[in-house]
Simulated scan of single mutants.
Amino acid sequence: MLVLSENVIKIGRGNLYAGTVGHSAETLTKTMQAVVVMQILGLPLPPLAPFEKSLFAECYGWGNRVDRAFFVQV
């Protein structure tokens, strides 16, 4: 569980002070490591529908500013 928490924190901090263009290899690596740990622990993966609404390419990887309700309404 500690590895999972560490990976999630690294995902959030990975590009904290810099925008990205195209993709972030570090973010993808840590995301996939978190997925593997979740599968090993038998934890359900989060639904992808909210993430499909906001493109990674928007605002250099930060996404456009939207209200929280934007992600709740699938």
Rank of each mutant, 00 (worst) to 15 (best):
Q39T: 12
V37Y: 01
L48V: 12
A49H: 06
M32V: 15
G63I: 02
P47M: 09
K53M: 03
M38V: 01
Q33W: 09
P44W: 00
K53F: 04
A49Q: 08
E52V: 01
Q39Y: 07
M32C: 08
I40C: 14
T29H: 12
L48Y: 06
P44F: 07
H23M: 05
A57F: 01
V36M: 11
E58G: 00
R65K: 15
Y60Q: 14
A49T: 10
T27F: 06
A25H: 11
R65T: 13
P44Q: 14
T27Q: 08
I40A: 12
G63P: 03
Q33M: 11
E26W: 10
G61D: 06
G63A: 04
L41W: 03
M38P: 05
S24N: 12
E52D: 09
W62E: 11
C59G: 06
K30P: 02
T29V: 15
T31K: 02
A57I: 05
P47D: 13
K30H: 15
Y60A: 13
S54A: 10
N64K: 10
Q33V: 07
N64I: 11
A34Q: 01
A57K: 04
N64P: 00
S54L: 14
A57S: 12
T29F: 11
L41V: 01
L55H: 01
P50Y: 03
G61C: 05
L55T: 02
L48R: 12
K30T: 09
P44Y: 07
R65F: 15
S24T: 08
A49Y: 04
G61H: 06
E26R: 15
L41A: 10
N64T: 12
L28Q: 11
F56Q: 01
P46W: 06
T27N: 04
A57G: 06
Y60E: 13
M38C: 08
N64W: 05
L41Y: 00
L55C: 00
M32K: 15
G22H: 04
V36R: 14
L55Y: 00
A25F: 10
G63R: 05
M38D: 00
T27Y: 05
V35C: 11
C59D: 10
P50I: 03
S54E: 09
T29Q: 13
L48A: 15
L48M: 11
S54G: 01
L45C: 13
M38K: 00
A25Q: 13
K53P: 02
F56R: 00
F56W: 06
L55M: 00
L43K: 06
P46E: 14
L55Q: 07
L28V: 15
E52H: 06
Q39V: 10
G42I: 02
A34F: 05
Q39A: 14
Y60S: 11
P46H: 06
V35Q: 12
V36I: 14
L43G: 03
V35F: 13
P47N: 11
A49V: 05
Y60C: 09
K30L: 15
S24A: 11
K53R: 07
T31P: 03
L28S: 12
C59H: 12
Y60R: 13
I40P: 01
E52Q: 09
F56D: 04
G22I: 03
V35P: 01
S54W: 05
E58Y: 02
L45N: 08
G42N: 05
V37Q: 09
